[in-house]
């Protein structure tokens, strides 16, 4: 089981990295989200995949019997929420950027750092 998870993890992270290196804005952001989800899977599997029992204390019992390690599950819940927030933010950012810049090519996005025209001096920005 752990090998299957490791393989899935490697595939997702590799695919995400490939997408994140793209010059296309949306591909780049979706790639980052994929890497994030791959790493969430890593967090989930960090407690070892021993038991498939959910970590619930049975009615009447005082402590956890045979069950999965609850700590990585708590961690991965937090991490999932955080990566979800970033995904939401990045999508809104991408939509606004596409509207304003009119191009999905990140190499064309030079608004904050205009290319230099002079050989030895940086571009002169207009007053912000």
């Amino acid at each position: 089981m752990i090998w299957a998870v490791a393989l899935a993890l490697a595939t997702v992270i590799a695919a995400g990295t490939y997408l994140a290196l793209s010059r296309d804005l949306l591909r780049c952001l979706i790639g980052l989200a994929l890497v994030g989800n791959g790493i969430n899977l890593l967090v989930f599997s960090s407690g070892r995949l021993l038991s498939q029992m959910p970590p619930f204390v049975a009615a009447g019992a005082q402590q956890l019997a045979v069950a999965a390690n609850p700590v990585p599950q708590a961690l991965v819940l937090t991490a999932i929420v955080i990566s979800f927030i970033f995904l939401c933010f990045s999508l809104v950012l991408a939509v606004r950027l596409l509207q304003l810049a009119g191009s999905a090519d990140t190499a064309q996005l030079r608004a904050a750092e205009p290319a230099a025209v002079d050989a030895v001096k940086p571009a002169l920005e207009e007053a912000a």
Partner: peptide, 11 residues
């Protein structure tokens, strides 16, 4: 656009 471009790179 200037702010959002900077935000993207920071992000």
């Amino acid at each position: 656009l200037r702010q959002l471009d900077a935000t993207l790179k920071y992000f």
